[in-house]
Design a protein around this nucleic acid. Structure first.
Lengths: 351, 351
DNA sequence: ACCAAGTATCGAAACGTTTCAATCTTTCGG
DNA sequence: CCGAAAGATTGAAACGTTTCGATACTTGGT
């Protein structure tokens, strides 16, 4: 009820100049309103002659459809809502780009918002989306799904949840982070590493937890015995730097020979700290990140990382959603992408 | 007319479940529609008793306002449009964040789009915004202002142009990039550099041109004589790397002692190439970037850069726009921010 | 020449609000 | 105790579309 006390706008300051309506077009083209509406929405019902007359009138008057009226009468909106979890994360931006790609090509609109990991803000935006009567939602959700969101899912609102494996109602697009984690560590093990550190906060977010699970699984399945040290850290460059410094300070005997970071940002920090403290990467220490954000390849030592198809996740989510809304039953309601490993220069055999 | 042939949605697939309207609330609360509307929009006109009755009914029915109907009848929208020039540029994302900050706190909504430097796409979105009858627009525009945009400006539509100094109609928020360029080079000159390279494409974008202008001005005003080499380059990491390699290959006599990059991205590439070819920064070569994007401080050699107040630009633009729309005359219709220099470790005295 | 069957066109209702003028109720000064 | 001002409440119109049933105009088969 956030808008209750909104001050009404000064009517003399009308936002847009008064525009011609369908009525004016009809008058100028000497046809009825209905015919104008039809040439716009069902041209096949209108004779070619009228069609050009109407088109001419539209051009002459600079007529622009009033979306709110159309929406109200037809009860049908062509706008989607997209809620980002965190607009600073390059991966999520890429998801947004993907969504935009497919919506733009299919002639839909997207209302983008950003919960900034704040449940209150998420709630506000969900309410807003409801007021707008959007056709459907794409959400990168908070870690425990909020009640509001859960309610929407079970009420049948078309919602696609992104980056969180779901299975029940609604739709979802996720990536298999447990095999992602396994992939990264298997790579290290194959290179000969037998002592590996995992840097990242296990409880910070669902996806991170999965990565660690994958790591453990890969180690359990390895033929050799591998030691794993888990070093909790927030998902930031600074936290990575702190952990990297700590690792560099270890005695060579205690020190792992490879580090896996839960997130590229962490890997950045680790890398900096290691280099600054005289360790060479990958000679003295291998390092693998996760997400393959654009800068990973531009680091002083280009980073080996696990790539998640963010863009593709966005396009897929938008496709599933628009299909569901227009009544085409999507072939799969839950899709899980497989990540893959991008080997660059930050990993090598231990010395 | 892009939507002319849109297929109507399957009505049995109604996006959202049928919702209670104001009429239902009125019936349940035993009051008229008008009273419900008033408790929502002008609570001071309604007696406390009715107010609680209506509130209860709203809660019980889960009533959610239908924004399109409100918009249609009141002729008044509380939604702004934001058009980004390039959603990959961290600076512009930051502008968006700023916009969102103030709109969220003032209870407005933002429709975000991204022209991706494609004039066609810009045009499409402008049309869309017009159809939505948005209250106003914030635009980071293409280099030569598009005709459509120019038309909106002169037709009195509330528009704030960002990152482009304007002076005529409409409003604008920009930053003084010529003093920004001067700032960076003055810093180098003060450190003792007398041979400086400017890397960046002079004609790529208005703001870049201004930076170079500032550079030239600072050199002209310097007491010592300074040699300037302009090395054109696209605004990407790769282009920077190429130029960096080239610079590293120069004979020490011909080589500049400092490089100024038109954009941080370029500086990243230059830095990598220099380091890889054995030059030390800042010992052998000073380097200054522009924009101070978040990663600048996280490079292996933290980058000296010119900071532009992106976030602030966003908040300011949104404030100006909402003020203008609600009839409050903004104190200044064109604001220009001053950039400032952030000195980190990539610059030092020449040896 | 007439009728059936399209094919084009139209008038008017409806979508869910806000708003405005009109009515009803209370309060209070004299 | 009256009348008027102030305060609450309401019915109905309006916003700009889309849609639906009805009407008018063609056409072609007989």
């Amino acid at each position: 009820m956030s808008r209750i006390t909104a001050t009404p706008i000064n009517p003399d300051n009308a936002p847009f100049p008064k525009r011609a309506g369908i009525k004016d077009v009809a008058r100028l083209a000497q046809v009825s309103q209905a015919t104008v509406s039809n040439t716009l929405n069902h041209p096949e019902l209108v004779s070619p002659a009228r069609r050009v007359a109407v088109a001419a009138a539209i051009r002459q008057l600079g007529y622009v459809r009033h979306e709110a009226a159309r929406h109200l009468r037809s009860g049908y909106s062509r706008t989607l809502g997209l809620m980002l979890l965190d607009a600073w994360n390059p991966g999520f931006i890429e998801v947004a780009r993907g969504v935009e790609d497919t919506t733009a090509s299919r002639d839909w609109t997207v209302l983008i918002s950003n919960s900034a990991r704040d449940p209150e803000r998420e709630k506000t935006y969900l309410r807003l989306f409801a007021e707008e009567r959007l056709a459907g939602l794409i959400v990168i959700p908070q870690d425990p799904l909020s009640d509001d969101l859960r309610r929407m899912l079970s009420s049948g609102t078309p919602v696609v949840v992104v980056d969180r494996a779901e299975s029940g109602e609604g739709m979802s697009v996720a990536v298999d982070d447990v095999t992602g984690g396994a992939l990264a560590v298997k790579h290290l093990i194959d290179l000969g590493h037998r002592h590996i550190a995992f840097v990242g906060d296990e409880s910070a977010a669902g996806p991170v937890h999965n990565r660690l699970t994958g790591v453990r699984k890969a180690i359990a399945e390895a033929s050799a015995s591998v030691r794993l040290d888990v070093l909790p850290a927030a998902l930031t460059v600074e936290a990575g730097r702190a952990r990297g410094k700590q690792i560099a300070a270890m005695s060579p005997a205690d020190r792992p020979t490879a580090v896996m970071a839960a997130v590229d940002l962490l890997a950045f920090g680790v890398l900096q700290a290691l280099l600054r403290h005289g360790l060479r990467v990958p000679d003295d220490m291998s390092l693998v990140g996760y997400d393959d954000i654009p800068f990973a390849r531009h680091l002083s030592v280009p980073l080996t990382s696990v790539r998640r198809p963010h863009r593709k996740m966005g396009t897929t989510a938008a496709e599933m959603l628009t299909n569901a809304i227009t009544g085409r039953v999507p072939e799969r309601r839950h899709v899980v992408f497989q990540p893959d490993l991008v080997v660059r220069e930050s990993t090598g055999a231990p010395t």
